[in-house]
Measured scan of single mutants.
Amino acid sequence: KAKLLVLLYAFVATDADTICIGYHANNSTDTVDTILEKNVAVTHSVNLLEDSHNGKLCKLKGIAPLQLGKCNITGWLLGNPECDSLLPARSWSYIVETPNSENGACYPGDLIDYEELREQLSSVSSLERFEIFPKESSWPNHTFNGVTVSCSHRGKSSFYRNLLWLTKKGDSYPKLTNSYVNNKGKEVLVLWGVHHPSSSDEQQSLYSNGNAYVSVASSNYNRRFTPEIAARPKVRDQHGRMNYYWTLLEPGDTIIFEATGNLIAPWYAFALSRGFESGIITSNASMHECNTKCQTPQGAINSNLPFQNIHPVTIGECPKYVRSTKLRMVTGLRNIPSIQYRGLFGAIAGFIEGGWTGMIDGWYGYHHQNEQGSGYAADQKSTQNAINGITNKVNSVIEKMNTQFTAVGKEFNNLEKRMENLNKKVDDGFLDIWTYNAELLVLLENERTLDFHDLNVKNLYEKVKSQLKNNAKEIGNGCFEFYHKCDNECMESVRNGTYDYPKYSEESKLNR
């Protein structure tokens, strides 16, 4: 008799109507990190870190770059004969040098303040090359056809396309004075040089004057150069050297050249137009028929994500570079809930034993079982409120962090190594801060989002509990077992918050 009662009780308990509160689960393989956990499985997430590029040089917003090819900045601007293909260059979106560009200054020497000139050019998007001192009329008392084997072109001695090597005419090199007034309405880049012979005999042979000088002056520039005559090792078949100089001439300003020898005179100059998204990159990537809004030396990035880990040097509207390998923000729920887990921000989770793959029309909802059958029903209101809140948060985070910009490298010469090392340390410090901030932001927001979901499920549970009161009992896994019969209409009233407690209280009292 006792065995019969136990079996009867078990049958009745199993047959009781139930309603459970749960949440969506799926077959997603997404994982995120939080402050407290690593690799948390979630139903949905968004990636904030771009880690792919196309490996190509592309047009930037429809404008092609200027590819210097086998030449570098120095060779292009001075007019190395091997860089003749660059003479027609007028406009570009950015400038590309190759790491091993070999054609710079063909006659050995240095372009002074080269690093600063590169910085200036990094904001130039177009130029006009014009004859600042016409070759045939500007130097009537001097020979202007100086050439050298060091600047050979097609097997013949030649010289820079933008400079003139002035030497004596006959047996004399009379003092020369020439000036140019900038009437271009924009900055003009003027380049010139000073020749330093290897011996007094060479000085006399070329310029006749043993104590020659070169003077260059404008409103913002004033220097006097004296040739340094000295024996030097042979470089590119030359014992002599040429140093090259430049200045930016403001609109309306005048530049005056005065010399008694050794002047490498300007022939062509450049009127410059600035462009905020221009820059110089060093890259071996090849040019393709493609378009982008962000270019790196590795390749083009076409992404609206706020961060990238491809390269710190970028041109155009680019994500911020960070050292992170993963920045994924959760938008959905835990896919593998932890039992009795309390989140960092106070939300209680884990009283549900598992997510439901059968509930596909919402994030949170119900599963019921009664004599009429069983089924899932999503709670659309709480789901939609959660979707709206999380979507707004993700968009806000992306908008705040998605300050796209150009980031170019800084140039230092060989004598500025300590400054370069200090600059690298400062840049590394800023990069570490950006990386830390980005990672911390994602970790915190992921923790908040998961706790937010847990709290929403808990609130749904409490909503049902407050309606049923003692007409049902909690069975410990997020479910309630009714003390009365609850048909589909009754189940719907529980879900929509209109459950009639008094209607079922007498039946429940008897069954309790």
Rank of each mutant, 00 (worst) to 15 (best):
K1N: 12
L4F: 15
L7C: 10
F11V: 14
A13D: 03
Y23R: 02
Y23M: 11
H24V: 12
S28T: 15
T29G: 06
D33V: 12
T34M: 08
L36M: 04
L36K: 01
N39I: 03
N39A: 10
S45T: 07
L49C: 08
H53I: 11
G55D: 11
G55M: 15
C58P: 02
P65M: 11
L68P: 02
L68A: 01
T74I: 15
L77I: 01
P81I: 04
E82S: 11
E82I: 07
S85Q: 13
S85T: 09
A89Y: 10
A89T: 15
A89C: 07
S93W: 12
Y94P: 05
Y94I: 00
E97K: 03
Y107G: 07
E115W: 08
E116M: 11
R118K: 13
R118L: 06
E119G: 03
Q120M: 05
S122W: 02
S123P: 01
S126G: 13
R129E: 08
F130K: 07
I132D: 06
F133L: 04
P134N: 13
K135F: 15
S137A: 08
S137P: 04
S138H: 11
P140E: 13
H142T: 15
H142S: 14
H142C: 01
N145P: 08
T148M: 05
R154K: 06
G155A: 14
S157W: 06
Y160V: 03
N162K: 05
L164Q: 04
W165C: 09
L166G: 00
T167I: 09
T167K: 04
K168Q: 14
G170T: 12
L176E: 01
T177Y: 13
Y180T: 02
Y180C: 01
V181K: 08
V181Q: 11
K184H: 08
K186N: 15
L189I: 09
L189A: 12
W192E: 05
G193L: 01
V194E: 01
H195A: 05
D201F: 08
Q203N: 04
Q203A: 14
Q204K: 02
Q204P: 00
Y207L: 02
S208Y: 11
N209A: 12
N209G: 07
A212V: 15
V214C: 07
A217T: 11
A217I: 11
N222W: 04
N222E: 11
R223E: 12
T226L: 12
E228Q: 13
A230K: 04
R232E: 09
P233E: 09
K234P: 12
V235F: 14
V235R: 10
R236H: 15
R236G: 06
G240A: 04
N243D: 06
N243H: 15
Y244E: 03
Y244Q: 03
W246D: 07
L249P: 01
I256M: 14
F257P: 00
F257W: 13
G261I: 01
N262L: 00
L263P: 01
I264M: 13
A265D: 08
Y268N: 11
Y268M: 09
Y268S: 03
A269G: 15
R274V: 05
R274I: 03
T282M: 10
